[in-house]
Amino acid sequence: MVKTSLATKAVAVTLGVLVIAGLTAMPAQAAPKSGLKIAIIPKAINNGYFTAWNKGAQKACKEISATCKYMGPTTATGPAQVAFINQAIQQGYNAIVISAADQNAITPALKKAIARKICIVTSDADITDTKSRTVAVLPASSERIGAAEVDWIAAQIGNKGKVAVLSAAATAANQNAWIDAMKRQLAAKYPNITLAGVYYGDDDATKSAQQYGQILTEHPDIAGIISPTTVGIRAAAQEKKSKGSKVAITGLGLPSEMAPYVLDGTVKEFGLWNPIDLGYVGTMAAAECASGNLKQANGAKFTAGGKSYTQGANGVVYLGDPYKFDSSNIVAFSKIY
């Protein structure tokens, strides 16, 4: 391990030097420059969702001949991510693609990076201060993600009954925005569905499973559970399978992890966007930015993988609605991510 790391480092440093030498010589052009150094920072490294996200990022890097390093903390907290933002600053990276584990705590560190002319792109999860990054590449608007999940559960429980939400951490910004959207969707479209409560599994499989138990103890008549996090929905599905309950489960999950539960009928349908695309487009946007081709501007466009993406307000780019998985397509998708 030590040997490879040192070797990698040597290569990285050499490339870095070449890159910097190359950068000063080349004029700005329409396509992203080759040989950029991009830091890919997930919320936490030991997480299957981010492994898929990084797959997309690395694919983009290969296409534009960038040197990309996937680096991040072992636990998903903002303060823990800051050390890696600092690393990217020290090592002279040209851009950072980050999924914010905390919507506020990383902002000061990102500002320092911007002061060093490093392009910041948030991908998957954004920060509150939209001036502290160029663009945010997000799956879809919170409204649509929240509403879609409510629609899925409503269809499964016949538009009436009690539902609970099994979320990630209480402070998870994405999840909180989606839950707010769920509440609005419930109020607007489903008067006969009541929200029994929001439970927090902290994106920890053990805690999530225990929270599932809590939900069933507190609300024996629960009809459905929405879990807008890949860790939560998988834990809930496993619990339902081993304990045999009638509760309907939906939310956001990885097809590869959820396939067994869909095939045996534990879960009927759930959804997700493609994390590979998120990582891919985020990295392409970062490369465009680092090449001087992309700034935050309402309506500005950039291309990634032959597709054109347009910035909305505050530099937010949406990739599209979550995709729904059921027994008809799960096998195919489970092989991809």
Binding site: G78, P79, A105, I106, P108, A169, A170
Partner: peptide, 16 residues
């Protein structure tokens, strides 16, 4: 110091 450094106060700070 923690609050100022991360410009925020969050209930799950400084875990561990």
């Amino acid at each position: 110091v923690y609050t100022l450094r991360f410009a925020s106060a969050s209930p799950d700070g400084a875990m561990g």
